[in-house]
């Protein structure tokens, strides 16, 4: 049975529905990301799980108990806030000890657990410092230690890495995963950063406009997006408008394309194709040909924009140590039809 289960969770603010019949579940010990653009309702969802927002309708079940009737202070969850929310007038050790103090745990045991928590986040040497005198990454670790020391049933992370610079963020991603695995705590991460969600999680829940878009493991969400929103939000994608004919053929800009069976009703559809799945070949031998209009060097990759009869397409080419076609060159583009994803057209779903 699922450890955390959201059942048709809904939140309305006046006329606005922030979270709309959202259902998903989280297994014990797993790391799940709630991913979506800002304003999609993911933070509101987290606040409802934490108990800081009332639920309009629906249920939140944690380990068999219904959380709706439990006040925030009795839910026993560990929370790491976007701003870290450290107590600035307390030392690191005092910050971490606060939750244990509230649980009336005696002093020797408290000291032992604070020490263990600080060791887990590699901060033992800074126990007596004040948070003010620490870097963003260090504060982040204090917040984590403080949330974990109470041995919560569930760890909630609200955009924990968004205030760090890019390099530190990558470091902390690995750290976060290590700490989560060592602590063995069930974790729900809220983030708008798709690469973070994919790098960290066992499963990704994609939300948009308060609704669930897709719930799957990161590879599947990236490789088999269910909606054009998911396809566009996770990584780069070419999105082509097309028409599914009654004869089951796929037509795009008056051409018939071969694609995988889609099982969709005839009508307007959208084709999604990842730019790294496209091969650049001679102008004559491609599925389509077009003129290179833009060329960007990304270090490990080249990004080409090619104007084709199907529409503008972007292509990512691994940097194999040689130069690529230049702007103005006519190239052919080809791909394995298996890699086309046929999705319901935007707005039609």
């Amino acid at each position: 049975m699922a450890f955390l289960e959201l059942d048709r969770l809904t939140k309305r603010f006046g006329m606005i529905t922030a979270v709309d019949t959202l259902s998903f579940s989280v297994d014990r010990g797993s790391f799940v990301s709630l991913l979506g653009p800002s304003g999609c309702g993911k933070t509101t969802t987290l606040q409802m799980i934490a108990g800081f927002e009332d639920v309009t309708s629906g249920r939140i079940m944690l380990n068999g108990r219904n959380l709706s009737a439990v006040p925030a202070r009795e839910r026993g969850l560990g929370i790491v806030f976007q701003t870290y929310a450290l107590f600035l007038h307390m030392t690191v050790a005092e910050n971490v000890a606060f939750g244990l103090e509230m649980r009336k745990i005696d002093k020797p045991e408290r000291a032992r657990r604070v020490k263990a928590a600080l060791e887990l986040v590699h901060l033992s040497h800074l126990a007596d410092r004040y948070p003010r005198a620490m870097s963003g990454g260090q504060r982040q670790r204090v917040a984590l230690a403080r949330a974990l020391v109470i041995e919560p049933e569930l760890l909630l992370l609200d955009e924990p890495l968004s205030n760090l610079d890019a390099k530190l963020r990558e470091e902390m991603q690995l750290e976060l995963r290590r700490i989560q695995r060592e602590a063995g705590v069930t974790t729900l991460l809220v983030t708008h950063d798709q690469s973070e969600a994919m790098a960290l999680s066992d499963r990704v829940v994609v939300m948009e406009k308060g609704r669930l878009q897709q719930e799957a493991d990161p590879f599947e969400v990236y490789d088999r997006p269910k909606t054009s929103f998911v396809s566009g939000f996770l990584g780069k994608s070419n999105s082509l408008r097309a028409e599914m004919g009654r004869d089951g053929r796929l037509r795009c800009a008056e051409r018939v394309l071969t694609g995988p069976a889609a099982g969709l009703m005839p009508g307007a559809v959208e084709i999604a194709l990842r730019p790294e799945r496209i091969e650049v070949v001679d102008a004559a031998s491609g599925i389509v040909s077009g003129c290179v209009t833009e060329k960007v060097f990304l270090g490990n990759q080249w990004l080409l924009r090619v104007a084709t009869p199907l529409g503008d397409m972007i292509v990512l080419r691994r940097n194999a140590g040689r130069n690529e076609a230049g702007i103005g060159d006519t190239v052919g583009l080809t791909w394995n039809p298996e890699h086309l994803r046929i999705l319901p057209a935007e707005g039609a779903a």
Binding site: G51, R75, A85, H89, R103
Partner: peptide, 25 residues
């Protein structure tokens, strides 16, 4: 910072404790 108070609540602090230990200082 409102979230500091929320953090204290999530750790089990009562309203009065939050005021005395977090807000007032």
């Amino acid at each position: 910072d409102k979230s500091a108070e929320r953090a204290a609540i999530s750790m089990g602090a009562s309203d009065w404790t939050v005021f005395r230990r977090i807000t007032l200082p």
